[in-house]
């Protein structure tokens, strides 16, 4: 999928401890026309990569070793370097409470697992189009 010519593709960081899901998310992000700047497997790596790359969007699994997606999300919001990036949380927990916790941690959107590839592509496109947080 190609982006409009002359405009740089949005830069996306993917973090999920499950290798198969990490690849699936990476494929979906590329389908949405974005560049995957890094695909990492735990919370601390996600935080380090976000600080190094300054991505437009971070797709975060909630349940990860080291630091959960919720913790990473909260830390991203604290750091001026990453405070403006968009965050999409993915989680196997799908109850209203889980969604509320995710949004309270500062996420822009929340997608329960299992997600459809089409649904993920749509969310990624939407989030990178609205621009960075003020």
């Amino acid at each position: 999928m190609d982006r409009d010519t002359g405009e740089a593709a949005a830069r996306v960081l993917v973090a999920d401890d499950e290798e198969d899901i990490r690849l699936l998310v990476t494929l979906a992000v590329r389908k949405a026309g974005c560049t995957v700047v890094a695909a990492v497997a735990d919370g601390p790596q996600a935080l380090a990569a976000a600080r190094a790359e300054g991505p437009d969007l971070v797709v975060l699994d909630v349940s990860m070793p080291g630091a959960t997606g919720l913790e990473v999300c909260a830390a991203l919001r604290q750091d001026p370097v990453t405070a403006g990036c968009r965050v999409l949380l993915l989680s196997a927990g799908a109850s209203p409470d889980d969604v509320a916790r995710g949004l309270a941690a500062g996420a822009d959107a929340y997608l329960p697992k299992p997600f459809t590839v089409a649904g993920l592509v749509e969310q990624v496109r939407r989030l990178v189009t609205v621009g960075s947080r003020a």
Partner: peptide
């Protein structure tokens, strides 16, 4: 159950979707 059954099902359904679409 929530994590260990949903995660593989996510992979199965996700990759099926990629192949079928």
């Amino acid at each position: 159950i929530s994590h260990e059954l949903r995660t593989p099902l996510s992979s199965i359904l996700g990759y099926l979707e990629l192949v079928m679409d």
